[in-house]
Write a protein that binds this DNA or RNA. Structure first.
Lengths: 156, 156
DNA sequence: CTATACTTGAGCAATCAGGTCGGGTTTCCC
DNA sequence: GGGAAACCCGACCTGATTGCTCAAGTATAG
């Protein structure tokens, strides 16, 4: 599980898609204009998202992209995994490269932390983000006040 | 909050340091040999860790590094933040670059996710990792069975 | 049949990961 | 005092990735 701007771009674009999906397919040109992401870069990202079946494409005029599943079934973890290459997490790759008594220390450790972060992000769905966005629509930089209505999923 | 192999190397090295700190300062050469991380790379990482006061150095023969605080007070989030440059998370940088009604959408979104991941990793301490390591010492690739004794902190 | 929109691939500048090299400086120890 | 053990530091290098452009497609509505 890597976490860079690339995944952020992808999640941002998917959120925009979810927010505009009510009126048929959403064009990359639209997302590009609204989110200020270059069209060509979006094309690359959505190529991956399509191959991983997170979105569906409609070609021709009036075409664009639709979510392949309901927003409530699409997780942030899925989106990030779709666009970011996986990471090996260990220099020995699980093999016998390191053979002393510290052999699998890093391996186990990172599998654990990986699983934890991934587990967390896989419980945040696009629908959660849409909801979040709608309840705090335009606004300025946002007061830090929180209510219990935020729900347990994405709050700390 | 970025999450790459760099941060992993740093956490791995700090864990090794914590595991061997009982017998005085730990040398980078030792960490390098045990964890198979290049000495020069470790020097770079520990330079940052020292400047952020996560470790203390002892120069001269018999020298090395010590933790600057107790392991129970050192969090994974601190370590990762020390070695990985921060990330801006948004193309408008909080400024008036984007001015339509989607102005702060990505900004708020990422601040939120950032805070969440960071919040999680800041509740995992080095002491937790040491404990984990001691209870499951050498072993092979580790069976996926889990018990409640794992505790709530770093399990999913 | 044309405009719209997705699809694919080559290529490119900048940055970063991960590491090498070559020098320092501080301090212990003989 | 002179090594040697260790940290310290900065330049530099290589390869991969990021983020992007350009150019050429293909499918389809009208």
């Amino acid at each position: 599980m890597r976490l860079t701007t690339k995944g952020r771009f992808a999640v941002t674009a998917m959120l925009d898609l979810a927010l505009h999906s009510s009126k048929g397919p959403v064009t990359l040109a639209g997302i590009s204009a609204r989110q200020r992401i270059s069209l060509s870069y979006l094309e690359q990202l959505f190529g991956k998202l399509r191959r991983r079946s997170l979105v569906e494409s409609v070609r021709g005029p009036g075409g664009g992209y639709n979510l392949a599943k309901e927003a409530s079934l699409l997780t942030v973890a899925e989106i990030i995994n779709a666009v970011e290459e996986s990471i090996d997490s260990t220099q020995c790759g699980g093999k016998e490269n390191c053979h002393d008594n510290h052999r699998c220390m890093t391996h186990d450790l990172w599998e654990e932390l990986n699983a934890t972060v991934h587990g967390f992000l896989s419980r945040v769905t696009l629908a959660d983000l849409v909801e979040k966005q709608r309840t705090k629509p335009v606004s300025v930089v946002a007061p830090r006040a929180r209510t219990r209505a935020d729900g347990p999923t994405i709050t700390v």
